[in-house]
């Protein structure tokens, strides 16, 4: 995730706040926000993760020129051949940790550009999941003036077995 632009827009913030069940007027009422100390609509603290919409490399949303892996005629597009065979469940990447450091809060009108680098990788043995392989990515989000707004560290994990409770 690097180089693309993530415009911070009011209707997107409103939809995101609704999805996390947050009716705070700071996230949808421009008049209320204008009278507040912030002076404008700000974004909830986890809003940066709505960046998937703008990241051309994201594999978490359907792309116009590629078949999506979700179910349709078959459980997944990847098994159109021999679809009668039940698939053996295979572990997929899960989100293990998420860290944000806010240098300032996002405001409507900001346009962010991320720069991502790979961090550490490590392994652990889990009780329910077998061997766990963790990998870290660090992203700096800079605004339209080149100022650092948020530093984000995300940790993904692949488990040996599917965790089902």
């Amino acid at each position: 995730m690097s180089g693309h632009k993530f415009p911070i827009e009011a209707s997107h913030i409103k939809m995101f706040a609704h999805a996390i069940g947050d009716g705070n007027p700071m996230y949808h009422d421009a008049d209320y926000a204008a009278r507040s100390k912030q002076g404008a609509i700000i974004a909830p603290p986890t809003f940066l993760k709505a960046n998937h919409h703008f990241d051309p490399e994201s594999n978490l949303r359907p792309k116009l020129d590629q078949a999506w892996r979700g179910s349709g005629k078959y459980a997944t597009t990847q098994v159109q051949q021999g679809a009668k065979d039940r698939l053996a469940p295979k572990p997929e990447l899960l989100h293990a940790e998420q860290h944000f450091e806010y240098h300032r809060h996002l405001r409507v009108g900001d346009v962010l550009t991320p720069t991502t680098r790979e961090g550490k990788t490590w392994e652990k043995l889990g009780k329910r999941s077998g061997k766990l392989i963790f990998s870290e990515t660090i992203t700096e989000h800079r605004d339209q003036n080149g100022q650092l707004v948020v530093t984000e560290t995300s940790v993904g994990v692949v488990t040996e077995h599917v965790i089902e409770q």
Partner: peptide, 8 residues
Amino acid sequence: GASGDFNP
């Protein structure tokens, strides 16, 4: 829908 994370 809001986040763009459509992981099925």
